[in-house]
Design a binder for these strands. Sequence first.
DNA 1: CCAAACATACCGACCGGTCGGTATGCGTCA
DNA 2: TGACGCATACCGACCGGTCGGTATGTTTGG
Lengths: 217, 217
Amino acid sequence: MFGGVIPNRPFRPQPATARDKLLEAAVRLVRAQGFSATSVDQLCLEAGVTKGAFFHHFPSKEQLGVAAAQYWSRSTGEFFASAPFHHEADPAVRVLGYIDLRIALISGPAESFSCVAGTMLQESFATSAAIRDACAASIGANARALEDDIAAALAARGLVEPRAVSLARHVQTVIQGAFVTAKALPPEAAAPAARESLGHLRRYVELLLSEEPSLAA
Amino acid sequence: MFGGVIPNRPFRPQPATARDKLLEAAVRLVRAQGFSATSVDQLCLEAGVTKGAFFHHFPSKEQLGVAAAQYWSRSTGEFFASAPFHHEADPAVRVLGYIDLRIALISGPAESFSCVAGTMLQESFATSAAIRDACAASIGANARALEDDIAAALAARGLVEPRAVSLARHVQTVIQGAFVTAKALPPEAAAPAARESLGHLRRYVELLLSEEPSLAA
DNA sequence: CCAAACATACCGACCGGTCGGTATGCGTCA
DNA sequence: TGACGCATACCGACCGGTCGGTATGTTTGG
């Protein structure tokens, strides 16, 4: 890969402070068992810090959840922002390049490639507005990062339908869905199935962007 | 709608026994706040039964989760099995009819149209094999119910790619993803966004099944 | 020397689960 | 017919343990 990162979780800094260690632990545990099933004690154990350190850095478990979503959003956002597909001249190629990169990042068991924001969103959207908003911002940022390229690609084909914002959201929807249904399969089948769904998404985008303008009318 | 059912949650029987009341309460609460964030006491309160009744019918909270997934799978399965789109002659129309029905069922806030199996799967796949398997069976049954129609529609167009099993799974993936990303939006925007993503799925299936055989080669 | 960065000990509320007991319905046999 | 025996359905107080959170040190870097 590029930038010397670890495929599934880019931009993984050596966690130095107790705060960083807790955020890293939160990413691992939330992916594996969700947020509410993860206790503060468990987070401290996984991070190798004590409870005092936890509540020194975070006023509550909920605030750690918010911070974890932001940490996740920032590190993944930086990773995708620095990906080489942005240098492609054709916006359609950039869009497909993003999807190909997402496919390439999927490997191993489900908990190693699933999305922290999506997982937390699902269980916290009704119980914690702060966590919901942080997760929504993370997924929304991913969609927005795609929107301009999609808009340019659609415009280049003379298409007014679908709207770029809608298609960008759809891309994130399929990615999130792939993470969910992957968890229904045995570990060794999870990644291939998720990649296959993203393959369908890729084909859809390809069909849209290779469509003859006459067919779109 | 058909059969005199309630749109979002078909085949809702008048819950008579404490067991049924608990399963109905589980559907509501799990949709809203997930499984592990829902306590046994809360389930009893919502169902209007006592804790004694709970553990009379279920040996553990985990087993209630399994039963809730099966209850969900059975009631939704019966609903989709009895839907009128099955009477269409063209298998492609049946497939699109299924997607259209799924779109029609999406309304109101996210917790009123989201999937119990998908929600529980996400948080329990690593902590409870029994719940994971029950949820996986529910989603798998939905995919399998589509597979024959998809296979027939693809065969009628002379397509060997994609495989029917893969496309059937993809349909479920997009549906699950739509439920997740809907939760990132304010309640009034959730349903329209979810419908829009299923609209993209519908367009993809349409593009596939209306594709000229020459293009597929 | 003092704040920031931790560690330790502890709290009350709530968790899933247990247990002794009651109400009710049904088959059975004198 | 009716009273007995027994299973099912349900009740609610209670248990040990874990939960998120707090109070109070102790260490450490500037």
